[in-house]
Design a protein around this nucleic acid. Structure first.
Length: 422
RNA sequence: GGAGAAAUGGCAGAGUGGUCGAAUGCACUGGUCUUGAAAACCAGCGAGGGUAACACCUCCGGGGGUUCGAAUCCCUCUUUCUCCGCCA
């Protein structure tokens, strides 16, 4: 959520900047300004009345203490009617507040100045590229290979749960676990504290990071207990800092978490959901940083470097793209996507997304710090996948295939008792 | 799941209807003293809104109510603790 003061002061620029996202917020912004103005007027009246009530309450106290019942009772009656008026004003303030909040939730984050305009992922800007397409003697899709080696069973998942819940078994399960271990160790080497969070979250946490109210339909919801299954560890981890005031000296706060992720993915179809490309349940290692607002864009680059390192150690051909305005997430100010080359599918697969949310999440979460002048300011939050497992699995299976089996990349061999999967 | 107790500032802990945004201690910040540090002493020290700055408003787990006036009384929800039951 944007700061209301920011909208008051910079609404013209905000409306302009949002055009990069292909959204027109002019109408909503106008409404916000009108409701905000009205709210402030009513609130002023309410507060002045409150003040008058306070004063007479004190007087009444004094009068009764002095034994002056007559005047006390007269004043009491007068205060009573003031109170009646104020009840209405208070209701009006609350109503306007709610209306304002609802409008504020409709405004996405302001895109960073480096963001290119555009409609969808075809307008994303390639920033860098590493490695080469592998030169293979055979070229089978990962779902074919996975079946051949018996490491992933989709039908079994369908039987137990439904489509999109594959079962990993034997060396497949071990390979995935080795990758998780590798990602966690790498994060630790970069100074991230490991967290094992809850996998179900309450409504307040959903609002904190921006999944609610916008993406309600994307999360699994447990009806009886009103909890949501996490779509990413970003939610529980970032919400650790909800309603807190951080010491400036503690910056940057760095956490890493491994978790399953649950997504309903309503409306997906076709080649996008083939094999491991898109699942309802998958595993991911997520990195989160809570930082000083002056540092966030610099730290975003640092996180990008971290993720690049992972892919390079795994020897996977990849490219980095900067999302265009139309593809940028609701809460994000700037996002880089990492895409790995899938040899058999002959296309890029998104394996990581690293974003700076600036103060957007912090404002919703009331996560602040005291600056050197003793003033409280909103922090900036960032997160990134490092990495999402299924598509990395897919890329390794495809890009490292040989007639003898799937060769295990060197950097994860130490976590396994085999160096070829066959 | 059943019964009981509790929730106050960063922490500990007073406060049971009237000047309480809240005693006191610890922690923290600044100063005095000291060659330096510690100790001691002095001062400051919650958050949000509002203002040019004051004023002023709101907040004592959340929500609602009683009252001229609520941290204090009532209702409700949540959480924590203790006992019983169940259980990986």
């Amino acid at each position: 959520m944007l700061l209301i003061s920011n909208i008051r002061e910079n609404h013209e620029e905000i409306v302009q900047r949002m055009k990069l996202r292909n959204v027109d917020v002019e109408h909503v912004v106008e409404k916000i300004l009108a409701v905000d103005k009205r709210k402030r007027e009513v609130q002023k009246r309410y507060e002045d009345n409150q003040h008058a009530i306070h004063i007479s309450s004190k007087e009444i106290g004094d009068l009764f203490k002095a034994g002056n019942k007559e005047e006390g009772n007269a004043l009491r009656e007068k205060a009573g009617s003031l109170k009646e008026d104020n009840k209405l004003l208070h209701e009006e303030v609350n109503r306007l507040d709610e209306e304002l909040l609802e409008l504020m939730y409709q405004i996405p984050n302001v895109p960073h100045e480096s963001i290119a305009p555009g409609k969808d992922d075809s307008d994303n800007v390639e920033i860098s590229k590493w490695g080469e397409k592998p030169n293979l003697s055979q070229n089978k899709e990962h779902w074919v290979l996975a079946r051949e080696y018996g490491i992933i069973d989709w039908e079994l998942g369908v039987k137990i749960t439904g489509a999109g819940f594959p079962v990993y078994r034997g060396k497949g399960a071990k390979l995935q676990r080795a990758l998780v271990q590798f990602f966690l160790d790498e994060a630790e080497d970069h100074g991230y504290e490991e967290i094992n969070p809850p996998f179900l979250i309450n409504e307040a946490s959903g609002y904190g990071t921006g999944q609610l109210p916008d993406k309600d339909g994307q999360m699994y919801h447990t009806e009886r207990d009103h909890l949501y299954l996490i779509p990413t560890a970003e939610v529980p981890i970032t919400n650790i800092y909800r309603d807190t005031i951080i010491k400036e000296a503690d910056f940057p706060l760095k956490n890493v978490a491994f978790s399953p992720c649950f997504r309903r993915e309503a409306g997906s179809y076709g080649k996008d959901v083939r094999g491991l490309n898109r699942l309802h349940q998958f595993e991911k290692v997520e990195i989160v940083q809570i930082v000083h607002p002056n540092k966030s864009f610099e730290i975003l680059e640092e996180m990008v470097t971290h993720v690049k390192g992972l892919l390079e150690k795994l020897g996977l051909h990849y490219r980095v793209v900067r999302l265009c305005g139309g593809d940028l997430g609701f809460a994000s100010a700037l996002t880089y996507d990492f895409e790995v080359w899938s040899a058999a599918q002959e296309r890029w697969l998104e394996v990581s997304s690293v974003s700076n949310f600036a103060s957007f999440q912090a404002n919703r979460m009331k996560c602040r710090f005291k600056d050197s002048n003793g003033k409280t300011q909103l922090v900036h939050t960032l997160n990134g996948s490092a990495m999402a497992l299924p598509r990395i699995m897919a890329a390794i299976i495809e890009n490292y295939q040989t007639e003898e089996g799937i060769v295990i990349p060197e950097c994860i061999q130490k976590y396994l008792k085999f160096d070829i999967l066959n």
